[in-house]
Simulated scan of single mutants.
Amino acid sequence: MTRYHFNFVDGRFHSGADSHDFESYAEARLAAVSTLGQMLRDHPTSPFGDDDLRVEVTDDNGLILLSVIVAAIEAPSAPR
């Protein structure tokens, strides 16, 4: 098993907020997407404005292996 660390960004950076052991990187990747989905369900307005919603997966050395990002970009013609 390998330990992966999940850092969350939702307008603020939460380093090492969650760590888990997974059999494979593929499992960690799926967990990151699932976690981001839950964050989006809990805070649906997070990707609007200047902030994005992000989960970064790192190894024990802090190397970023994956970033999953949700950002909403509204066209200038969108109603305000």
Score class of each variant (00 low, 15 high):
residue 5 H to L: 13
residue 27 E to H: 12
residue 31 A to E: 13
residue 31 A to F: 12
residue 26 A to K: 00
residue 73 I to V: 08
residue 38 Q to T: 14
residue 71 A to G: 11
residue 69 I to A: 11
residue 35 T to V: 13
residue 25 Y to L: 04
residue 72 A to L: 09
residue 41 R to A: 08
residue 34 S to H: 15
residue 16 G to F: 15
residue 57 V to M: 07
residue 20 H to Q: 11
residue 25 Y to H: 02
residue 5 H to Y: 14
residue 54 R to A: 12
residue 10 D to G: 08
residue 48 F to G: 09
residue 2 T to K: 02
residue 19 S to N: 14
residue 22 F to N: 02
residue 23 E to W: 05
residue 37 G to W: 02
residue 26 A to P: 00
residue 78 A to I: 03
residue 39 M to V: 09
residue 40 L to R: 06
residue 69 I to R: 09
residue 27 E to G: 05
residue 27 E to D: 08
residue 53 L to G: 00
residue 17 A to P: 13
residue 11 G to L: 14
residue 51 D to A: 13
residue 44 P to S: 09
residue 69 I to Q: 09
residue 30 L to M: 14
residue 70 V to K: 05
residue 48 F to R: 14
residue 18 D to V: 13
residue 27 E to L: 05
residue 42 D to H: 12
residue 78 A to F: 09
residue 8 F to L: 13
residue 59 D to V: 01
residue 46 S to W: 10
residue 65 L to S: 01
residue 79 P to S: 07
residue 31 A to L: 11
residue 23 E to A: 05
residue 50 D to G: 12
residue 26 A to C: 10
residue 14 H to L: 15
residue 9 V to E: 06
residue 31 A to N: 12
residue 45 T to H: 03
residue 67 S to R: 09
residue 72 A to W: 03
residue 74 E to L: 08
residue 79 P to A: 10
residue 60 D to P: 00
residue 11 G to N: 13
residue 57 V to T: 05
residue 37 G to F: 06
residue 66 L to K: 04
residue 46 S to P: 03
residue 33 V to Y: 03
residue 9 V to Q: 10
residue 32 A to Q: 05
residue 57 V to Q: 00
residue 27 E to W: 00
residue 40 L to Y: 07
residue 78 A to C: 11
residue 2 T to S: 03
residue 25 Y to F: 11
residue 40 L to T: 12
residue 77 S to I: 08
residue 16 G to R: 14
residue 56 E to W: 08
residue 63 L to M: 11
residue 10 D to T: 09
residue 24 S to Q: 02
residue 53 L to H: 02
residue 46 S to Q: 07
residue 76 P to T: 04
